[in-house]
Nucleic acid binder design. Structure first.
Lengths: 132, 132
DNA sequence: TTATTACCTATTGACATGGTAGGCAAATAG
DNA sequence: CTATTTGCCTACCATGTCAATAGGTAATAA
């Protein structure tokens, strides 16, 4: 299951993409439009900022904006930023599979195939594809 | 992420499929072969039994066995039995989507497409496909 | 009748989820 | 220079899930 963090983050990114002509967009506006608690969104945008997907500026006329063009964001990288990893099983989430059962594991091929499918799906979708 | 319950359940089902000629298979044997705590497996097989995917018989020469042929189980139904739902987001997990934002939700089509893809993947795979 | 096996209830510690609360720091409009 | 706006930071909390463990009772066959 994709948690609220991942889903809200995607909605924030869409909102920023739709208002990218308006300079820095205050979180208050996003929270109101998206009907999400501003306090909770603070946690989410903090992660988006530290992943350099967006930038923030304090003070009057401050807010957030995208660091790239909307067609330059894969949906997968936004979700992975929030959820940690798209992998369906722990043994595929790390770089190296350390599972002692991996040779002869009868379920590993299934998880690998699934992993690839999910990865390709979310990295094939771009932020710009979600704009109306 | 697929939890250990779903993954272990799949391995139990595979184990039962591979030993389906030996009548009822005791959980002790499965636990030893699969290197999983028997106590923990008890929780898992209980769910499999109540979903009627397997049956159990007590006493000497008792154990568990499949209720159908291995080509008659979709991997998806095994996982869904343990995990509850394969749906990526809460609003798609129930029969009726009750989300007030669903009209005009810009992310819903993405989740729907993903949901369908995952569902088709896991229901396309059969238990027999996982046997060596 | 005894060993074997399933089946039942309860408990645990660790962690994740989905938030809330309050205050400090930076920047700018006036 | 000051007031206001806005981001940013730390801490806290209630609830639930995960991954087990523990100890017992009931059924069954040799």
């Amino acid at each position: 299951m994709i948690s609220t963090k991942g889903r809200y983050a995607l909605r924030v990114m869409i909102d920023l993409a739709e208002h990218k002509d308006q300079g820095y967009v205050p979180l208050k506006d996003i929270a109101e439009r998206q009907q999400i608690s501003k306090k909770y969104l603070e946690i989410i945008v903090r992660d988006l900022v530290s992943a350099k997907l967006i930038t923030g500026v304090s003070g009057k006329r401050g807010g957030y904006k995208l660091t790239r063009d909307p067609d330059d964001y894969a949906v997968g990288e936004i979700i992975e930023t929030m959820e940690g990893s798209l992998s369906p099983v722990a043994c595929l989430a790390c770089e190296v599979n350390e599972c002692p059962r991996q040779e002869g594991c009868q379920t590993l091929p299934l998880w690998s195939e699934y992993d690839t499918m999910v990865h390709d799906f979310f990295y094939g979708k771009k932020l710009v594809d979600l704009l109306k």
